[in-house]
Amino acid sequence: MKKLKLIVSLIILTFFSLFALFPIGYIFAVSFKNNNSFQLSSFQIWTDSSSFDNYIKLFTETQFPTWLINSLVVSTSVTLFGITLAAFAAYALSRFPLRGGPTFLLVLLSTQMLPATMLLLPFYLLLSKFGLANHYLGLLIIYSSTALPFCIWQLKAWFDSIPKSLEEAAQVDGSTRLQAFFKVILPISGPALAVTSLFQFMTAWSEYAIAAIILQDSELFTLPVGLKSFQASLATEWGLYAAAAVLVSIPAVLLFTLLSKALISGLTMGSVKG
């Protein structure tokens, strides 16, 4: 009976694993094809006719390198800017008794309930008024502000779980409140900062709708907007599209791998005291 259960579990797990892995294998296979075909005659990732031509073309004949740099600049800036703001705000909300603090936190969270598409027009009008449309700074402000409430909540939960006596000990030992924050609280907040940074980075890295509205100049495109330009009205360059999709996923995979240890402890943060 136990063995049967195990076999059934294995079959189900294999089925769903294949289901999840199939699109990834498919996109790899398409990226190595030269005939610009989205249909595969056989499901082989690498065949005799496969080559790296699409990848080479991507870097030599398209604006992909520019978009890649743009995306990296925007995502990294959003992450650094957002995490700095979120860390200070979360620490203040966690440690200082603010009048109406809990209400403020609820209001902050309620902003996450508005769909991004609903805010597209107001965002665009606001940025146009300040001359920030078609500008990275506009994108940076929008990405940071929309991700901020969730990040503040996430980090506040972490700071709440850190005993206040740690900062108090640092203060008695001779540090200012700010030194205690930088020398004691931040160094032990690695898991929380990793999860929150990853959330910020991934939000900015994969966002399309806002970037497509704000950025009009192809020199300024981020990867999702740039990739969309491969879809022409007459012919879509599926090979290029697939190769770009593979490359776009690399930073995310690398980040997840690098932060995996911190992520595991970060995802369970607050569940165990101490």
Partner: peptide, 19 residues
């Protein structure tokens, strides 16, 4: 501020810096 009072303190939960 505590740092300006020239004292040291032992806390109930020890408050050692974990990192």
């Amino acid at each position: 501020q505590p740092r300006q009072r020239g004292l040291s303190m032992v806390f109930q939960n020890y408050a050692l810096y974990p990192h």
